[in-house]
Design a binder for these strands. Structure first.
Length: 163
DNA sequence: GCCAACGTTGGC
DNA sequence: GCCAACGTTGGC
């Protein structure tokens, strides 16, 4: 048993909807509401222990707030069946779910969020999916090199001049 | 199967 | 609020 994650991901959330602070308070949560096939397929690849960069979108500036860990592999997102739920999907038959979610648990909050404009200046993560033009996926794969760099950067408070 | 129209995402 | 990029829908 190692605490070293095997694979790495980035997951976006609007903090007004669900923030890293909320996750820290709750300890863990189910990641419901993903309604994009690519993002769903990526979640189905996740394994327990995988590392997650928690990204706050739709704020100024957006940024990476901290890290989480996958603690339950993909299972049907129950909100797709609930007519009163925000993410209800009328096309889905009860016996054939379309949408899945995973559970994640809180791991760490960076002293300061790493803002998107700073990420764009970092040659180490050039080519990162998040920085690609028109990138909208709410779940993205992250390489091990990107993970290592960003976690180290985040832990020292986004200070890109430190050694 | 093509593709125009429409809806959503999400940075700015 | 604007708008670019992308995904989805639906007519044909």
């Amino acid at each position: 048993m190692t605490d070293r994650p095997r694979r790495f991901w980035l997951m976006k959330s609007e903090p007004s909807d669900y923030s890293l602070d909320d996750l820290e308070r709750d300890g863990r949560t189910h990641w419901d509401g993903v309604r994009n096939f690519k993002a769903r397929n990526l979640m189905k690849e996740m394994e327990i222990g995988d590392g997650v960069l928690f990204y706050h979108s739709m704020k100024r500036p957006p940024g990476i707030a901290g890290t989480a860990r996958v603690c339950r592999t993909a299972y049907p997102d129950f909100t797709q069946f609930d007519p009163k739920a925000k993410y209800f999907d009328r096309r889905v038959k009860p016996d054939k779910p379309w949408w899945y979610m995973v559970d994640i648990e809180f791991v760490s909050r960076f002293p300061k969020e790493i803002p998107l404009p700073l990420l764009r200046k970092m040659p180490e993560i050039e080519g990162m999916a998040l920085l690609k033009r028109g990138q909208r996926l709410s779940v993205q794969p992250v390489t091990e090199a990107e993970w290592n760099f960003l976690v180290a950067l985040g832990q020292r408070g986004g200070d890109d001049t430190a050694s």
